Simulated assay, not measured.
Amino acid sequence: MAYKSTILITGGTSGLGYHAALDIARACPASQVILSSRSDKEQAAASINQALGQSNVVYAPLDLGDLAGVRAYAREFAAAQHAPLRALVLNAGLQFPGEVKTTVDGLEATFGINHVGHALLFHLLVPHLADNARVVVTSSGTHDPEQWSGMPPPIYASAEALAHPTPELAASHSGRQRYATSKLCNVLWTYALARRLSERCPQRGITVAALDPGLMPGTGLGREAGAAARFLFSQVMPRAIPVLRVLARTGNIHRPAESGAALARLAVGEEEEVRGVTGKYFEGRREIRSSRDSYDVEKQEELWRWTVGFLSGGDEEARRRFEELR
């Protein structure tokens, strides 16, 4: 079948991403929906196709913690001659509660996967974005110290300190704090990207927005945690969501299907509240202000410059390509 467009979702094989993919595939039967994650062996794609009686969902393996693998993925995407990308949903994310872990490229893994891998994927896929395409970044309310989240506040000194923390820094920052900081990076990068898209290629109409899906008991986010924490998050808390909302005094606790619908809406929804909207932050279906630090333009630019510099490896031609956003 010749599809009119393509929609790519990272982390689309489970939890939030799976439910978003299900809603997107249902709403866009004429688009090919690509689910990408480290490992799945096509079960999620087959499950969605069976549930909808369609065949427009496929699986493509992608490890965001391996930058050479991300580059290979982008080459394979180009070689497959997919229809233009209508939406790029940068949703995958991991949390490492214990000691510092690193990617194959030597980056602290939370920062490397949640930010750097996604940034590289975006830059490599820019030529394949359709006019008026949407880029959606899954962040988290944990990036905002003024919101209740139960997480340590993020600490952003520099991108280099996050990528290659010193032993002293690694010892003083917990894995949960590194996660919250990576989610702040998602919002900083969203705003830096939105500004560049508006300034350098406004004629293309590409938009970018960030989403806080809320706390979602039952997802695989905590799969790197200990056995007791995994059991609590996956088995106990999903059954207690109404109680949790009362105790936490927030409505921002959702089942994955609810947050998946909010993510799908940002990616392909036609409502006035999301169509053509760029450089904004949403909590579920509501546009809200993100954290104070996220509006710090110096932090946005520092993260952007470091990211482009690191990904280009000092090659000026590569740096120029990353910056052009053609």
Rank of each mutant, 00 (worst) to 15 (best):
E270V: 08
V246P: 02
D212P: 09
R200N: 12
G150Q: 04
A209E: 02
Q95K: 07
A262L: 07
V277L: 05
Q235Y: 06
L120A: 06
D293W: 00
G279I: 01
T102L: 14
L121D: 09
A119S: 05
V187H: 04
E160N: 04
G220F: 05
G112Y: 07
E168I: 03
K41Y: 11
R286C: 12
D296Q: 03
I253S: 11
Q147F: 06
R289V: 01
L193D: 01
S259I: 09
L303W: 00
G284T: 13
A157Q: 12
H254E: 12
V274I: 05
R285Q: 10
T6M: 11
R321S: 14
F282T: 02
I113A: 02
D144Q: 03
L263G: 10
R289N: 14
L129T: 04
A79G: 12
L303F: 02
R275W: 06
T207A: 14
E168K: 09
R75V: 12
N186Q: 05
A60T: 11
I34W: 13
P256A: 14
E287H: 13
G65K: 12
C201N: 15
L120G: 10
G222H: 10
R255W: 11
S139F: 05
G175T: 03
R176L: 15
S172R: 12
G150A: 06
R319Q: 14
R75E: 15
S158D: 03
I113F: 00
T102M: 13
A27C: 05
L197D: 02
F231S: 09
L121C: 08
L67T: 03
G53W: 11
A228E: 14
Q50Y: 06
Q54E: 13
L125V: 12
E301W: 01
P152Q: 11
R223W: 05
S37H: 09
E272N: 02
P213Q: 13
G112S: 07
R255A: 15
M1C: 07
V135C: 02
E298F: 05
L52I: 10
V70A: 11
V187F: 02
T110G: 03
L211F: 04
V136M: 07
Y18E: 11
A87W: 04
I7M: 08
R255D: 13
N186K: 01
Y295S: 00
L107E: 03
T166Q: 08
Q177C: 06
L125K: 09
Q81F: 01
T219I: 09
H128G: 02
L62T: 10
H173F: 10
E287F: 04
D296Y: 00
N114G: 01
L35F: 14
N132F: 08
R26G: 03
C28D: 14
S139D: 03
D105V: 07
T103F: 07
L193E: 01
E258G: 04
N114S: 04
L107I: 08
R86A: 15
N114T: 01
A257D: 15
E99C: 02
E76K: 15
A133R: 08
G260E: 08
I241V: 12
N56F: 13
Q81R: 13
L263C: 11
A25V: 04
R223V: 09
G112P: 06
A257G: 03
V58D: 03
L121I: 08
L22H: 15
